[in-house]
């Protein structure tokens, strides 16, 4: 049974999930996308999310936990409204990725996987995000920001803080 009576998701997301389980040869294929979309809406993968997704896909909750703990983008604790993901992998490192990370830490006053007290920003050091030729690069939620300098980071943070998400790479989905 994929349609859930008391869903914890918005009607749009619930409808999307109702559809998602129908498109694959096996509905379990919907699991990874569903977890990611659920996180986009709820902010993290809560126990309630696990329970509902398990029910939608006819899986044990343990199965869902096994899978979600494998993928590094999925988290079981809330993050900030804007999750700043700084790439420090080789190409970014060569072009100042660690300076950007240090700057973010200093500017936001938080460390890796930390969240600012106001809940606006969280910070994460991440592995290669596929922006090597435009390094150093970060992602804020799903938005890429590349060819960065510490000054550009300051501007970005201010814009996010002001609610003007600088839509460089398409609509922010969060």
């Amino acid at each position: 049974m994929s349609e859930i009576a008391n869903t914890i998701f918005s009607p749009e997301t619930a409808a999307r999930f109702d559809h998602l389980v129908t498109i694959y040869p096996l509905k379990r294929s919907a699991l990874v996308p569903m977890l990611l979309y659920a996180q986009d809406e709820i902010g993290y993968i809560s126990d309630a999310v696990i329970a509902e997704i398990a029910q939608r896909i006819d899986l044990l909750e343990l199965d869902v936990r096994n899978v979600l703990s494998y993928y590094s983008m999925l988290r079981t604790k809330p993050a900030g409204k804007y999750n700043v993901q700084v790439c420090t992998n080789i190409s970014c490192m060569l072009r100042g990725g660690y300076e950007i990370l240090d700057h973010c830490k200093h500017k936001l006053g938080i460390g890796h996987k930390g969240t600012t007290p106001d809940g606006v920003f969280s910070l994460e050091e991440v592995e290669c995000i596929g922006a090597c030729c435009w390094a150093p690069a970060i992602q804020i939620n799903y938005d890429f920001h590349d060819d960065l300098t510490t000054e550009k980071v300051d501007v970005l943070f201010q814009m996010y803080r002001d609610g003007l998400s600088p839509n460089t790479t398409g609509k922010d989905v969060k």
Partner: peptide
């Protein structure tokens, strides 16, 4: 029974 799983990586 499926009471045990593998988590993290």
């Amino acid at each position: 029974v499926f009471a045990l799983g593998i988590q993290n990586r």
